[in-house]
């Protein structure tokens, strides 16, 4: 068996607060295979977003290892880190907060192409148009400012920006949580299409077990910085074993539709 795309082992991050030390992430291990979606679920403060920030090297861990694409990710620095980061991208919950609102769409998509030396200045407009088309948007959108377009369009732009550098792994941190449900379905479909066609793996961080059961292959449920349980997403959601897993399932609103005859 080949090594996984991402292997996280014994990852730990502690914070000091008021003289106390709190482990936000407490010895966590997991792995992700190519083209696989692993969901990280759990309540607020369980460590989900800290893991995302550790993976992106926005913060450094106190202990543990991260192996990405067969190499020690935590030892990378400078140009080598920058180059590897092109393969590991991120999409946040609120694209308006993630981008300069006055920047144009072309600027937002052109930046990673420039920074990572992917396309020359001359080539860029064509690449930007191709990226827009790839995420189901019109190339005409390139000249618009980020604050002028809809929330669903902005999240498509965020995804286009993430895939601009041809990543093997995209971290999606509550990436569909703020979207209207009618838009959410389209964005999930786009993510699945990209995964199938470009073999991108996702670390899908969410508190919503409904969305997770629709998109994820496997799930890890976090509680207070540790993995309470993990496994096949369907199996875990159908029969959670941990206290926090049971609490999450119980707390998810159930929509019971009795007279829908076409249960197929």
């Amino acid at each position: 068996m080949s090594s996984p795309l991402l292997a996280v082992s014994e990852l730990t991050k502690r914070y000091r607060r008021g003289g106390q030390t709190i482990a936000a992430v407490d010895g966590i291990s997991f792995h992700i295979e190519p083209a696989e979606t692993l969901a990280l679920a759990g309540p607020s403060g369980s460590g989900k977003s800290t893991i995302a920030r550790l993976l992106l090297r926005l913060i450094e861990p106190d202990a543990g290892h991260i192996e990405f694409e067969g190499g020690d990710f935590l030892s990378l620095n400078g140009a080598a880190l920058r180059a590897r980061r092109a393969r590991l991208q991120m999409v946040f919950q609120d694209p308006l907060a993630a981008f300069n609102p006055r920047a144009t769409v072309a600027r937002v998509l052109g930046d990673p192409l420039r920074v990572h030396g992917i396309a020359s200045r001359r080539e860029r407009p064509r690449r930007i148009a191709a990226l827009l088309e790839r995420v189901g948007l019109s190339a005409d959108l390139a000249t618009r400012a980020i604050h002028e377009i809809s929330g669903g369009q902005r999240q498509r732009i965020a995804i286009a920006r993430a895939i601009a550098t041809k990543p093997s792994l995209v971290v999606l941190d509550e990436a569909v949580s703020a979207l209207d449900v009618s838009v959410r379905g389209q964005i999930l479909q786009l993510l699945l299409d990209l995964q199938r066609e470009e073999r991108i793996a996702y670390l899908f961080i969410s508190h919503d077990l409904g969305v997770i059961s629709a998109i994820a292959h496997r799930i890890a449920i976090l509680d207070a910085g540790r993995i309470a349980e993990s496994g096949d997403a369907r199996a875990v959601i159908d029969a959670p074993q941990s206290a926090i897993g049971k609490a999450l399932v119980a707390a998810t609103p159930k929509l019971t539709r009795t007279s829908m005859h076409d249960a197929s």
């Binding site: 379905g185 699945l192 059961s213 629709a214 998109i215 292959h217 997403a233 369907r234």
Partner: peptide, 23 residues
């Protein structure tokens, strides 16, 4: 009806277009 259909409950998944278990 569209709102109801777009709801993703615990019994939602996997979406029809989700790929199978990755190789």
């Amino acid at each position: 009806r569209a709102l109801l259909d777009a709801h993703l409950g615990l019994d939602a998944g996997p979406m029809p277009w989700r790929t199978g278990t990755p190789a």
